[in-house]
Design a protein around this nucleic acid. Structure first.
Length: 535
DNA sequence: TTGCAGTCAATATC
DNA sequence: GATATTGACTGCAA
């Protein structure tokens, strides 16, 4: 019974007690064992009473390693850190400390360490930490991740950024050698870390690696070594190529392009990257605001109207939703850290960064919410946006586990899809749109319509306005203070908003958005489907 | 099938 | 040249 319950309704890690986490750790270990080689020496315990403490668990784990020793390969995977061949259980034990360590003032500077003359670089620089992206170590890192206590992703990234900048180390180098990620991913990760509890096991990996790296007293040196090595190699290559007067390297892509020689065909095979025009983005955003989850049909229409591939439109919606979500995460974090650490550097530094970033186009999501013009004006538009953004919140807050999969159903246009509103061709006629919109309370089906409309005029306005609440809520811009209980549900208490307002107008706006949304929801709740709206 | 998380990698921007 | 942005892709879960 417990198992069933646990499997069907797992509590988020952050909400589990030490004891409560145990089963999950066991499961994870079991999973890892399977992955590693299928052994999971929890002899007979599967059916036995539910037992034991983590200690016994660790023992089991250790046994696993031992027993696995039969397999050479496995044994390797059992010792995560080459440097200190500790057993998995040990590593697990130490991990907690390791990872939790506030990590020493890492600003280590080369000088000290003898940079391994031979060929220490790459592979050698990693030994200290089980970061290696290589096969076997990957397993151990998984173990570490599974056993890792909750980490402060925000703090970690902040420190990493500090160390990198202080030592003039690039994201590319760091990403490729320490995290096994590309520069873009690293940048993204460092700029918008998701809170630990919202990360999947895989998503936590980079953070564990970063933490381990931070804890490594020689981290910087190692990276420096790598840097030097790379440079050397580069120079060498360059040198040789020059002497050979041969473009033996595939450097300038441009060259090849221009020359159209032999390599041409390869390039041609490459799909050129789609770059959406500002107007297209605008249209998509508008569509999103009205219908974050457009139906296939709507997508189709949108694609047609914008002259884009449907897959592009689909991808755009996926990415947009996901990025907006993340944007919210970091705000959440910022709000949190600001609230706690006062205006300690971390948050402030961050907010300073985040805000600008979002202002740009990157975080269109946010941008839209506070968007130019729309900003606080809170025209229904941002309303929808915000709604989308926040909608998932309640669910998350209440039941954090499945992070992203909130219940946007209400927003899905599918809902209306089948409905009458969804008439065949709502797209072309704004009129239809409006009408439709009027019919549909929250998410007018005509997203596409407005979407396709020229950016300049605000087609979104009329359609999004309809939502009864929207307008009223629109007033939400001024956000009718509604300390309703719902607010807590959204996890964005006014207090927070007020607190941040000072240094983060963005939050202020969002808070306003939220308020209006809440207002709407409550209105709706009091009017219809009271049960449905019961949060 | 759909949505999401996590990434990559091409571009854009700084 | 480094970093940020973003369209696309992969794998997974419901």
């Amino acid at each position: 019974g417990s198992v069933s319950d646990m499997l069907s309704r797992p509590k988020p890690w952050s909400k589990l007690t030490q004891k409560g986490r145990e089963p999950f750790i066991r499961m994870q270990l079991w999973l890892n064992g399977e992955l590693g080689q299928g052994v999971l020496p929890v002899q007979g315990q599967q059916q036995g009473p539910v037992l034991h403490s983590v200690t016994s668990l660790q023992d089991s784990l250790q046994q696993g390693c031992v027993s696995s020793e039969s397999t050479p390969k496995t044994s390797a995977s059992c010792s995560p850190a080459p440097e200190s061949p500790m057993s998995s259980s040990e590593s697990v034990k130490s991990l907690t400390e390791l990872v939790q360590q506030p990590c020493p003032p890492i600003e280590a500077n080369k000088d000290g360490k003898p940079p391994e003359p031979s060929d220490p670089p790459a592979s050698d620089s990693q030994p200290a930490t089980p970061l290696p992206l290589s096969g076997h170590s990957a397993l151990s890192i998984q173990e570490l991740v599974a056993m890792s206590p909750e980490l402060d992703t925000y703090g970690i990234t902040k420190r990493v950024k500090e160390v990198l900048t202080d030592n003039n180390l690039g994201q590319r180098l760091f990403g490729e050698t320490i995290l096994g990620l590309t520069q873009g991913s690293v940048s993204d990760l460092l700029a918008r870390p998701k809170p630990w509890h919202k990360l999947s096991l895989k998503g936590r990996e980079p953070f564990v690696r970063m933490q381990l790296w931070l804890n490594d007293p020689n981290n910087v040196e190692k990276l420096m070594d790598m840097k030097r090595m790379e440079k050397k190699a580069y120079m060498k290559r360059r040198h040789s190529s020059v002497s050979d007067t041969q473009p033996c390297e595939p450097p300038s892509v441009g060259t090849e392009y221009s020359q159209g020689a032999s390599p041409q065909p390869q390039h041609q095979l490459k799909k050129p990257r789609v770059v959406l025009a500002p107007e297209e983005k605008e249209a998509l955003k508008r569509a999103y605001q009205q219908k974050p989850y457009p139906s296939p049909k709507t997508i189709e229409d949108l694609a047609t109207q914008l002259n884009l591939k449907t897959s592009t439109v689909i991808n755009w919606f996926h990415n947009y939703r996901s990025r907006i979500r993340r944007e919210l995460f970091i705000e959440e974090i910022q709000a949190g850290s600001q609230g706690q650490a006062g205006a300690s550097d971390s948050p402030s530094a961050r907010s300073g960064r985040a805000a600008p970033s979002s202002e740009g186009d990157s975080c269109d999501g946010v941008e839209a919410a506070e968007g130019p013009g729309s900003a606080d004006a809170e025209e229904p538009k941002s309303q929808g946006e915000a709604e989308r953004e926040e909608a998932p919140r309640p669910a998350e807050q209440t039941e954090p586990p499945p992070s992203g999969t909130p219940g946007p159903d209400d927003a899905r246009d599918d809902d209306h899809e089948g409905g009458p509103a969804d008439g065949p061709g709502p797209l072309p006629s704004p009129a239809t749109a409006t009408a439709t919109a009027a019919a549909a309370p929250a998410a007018p089906e005509d997203a596409a319509t407005s979407a396709a409309a020229p950016p300049g005029e605000g087609p979104a306005a009329p359609s999004s306005a309809p939502p009864p609440g929207s307008s009223s809520s629109g007033s939400g811009s001024s956000a009718p203070r509604r300390p309703s209980s719902l607010q807590s549900l959204f996890g964005l208490p006014e207090a927070a908003g007020a607190r941040d307002s000072r240094d983060n107008p963005l939050r202020k706006k969002k808070a306003a958005n939220l308020n209006s949304i809440i207002h709407r929801l409550e209105k709706a709740a009091s009017r219809e489907e009271p049960i449905e709206w019961e949060f």
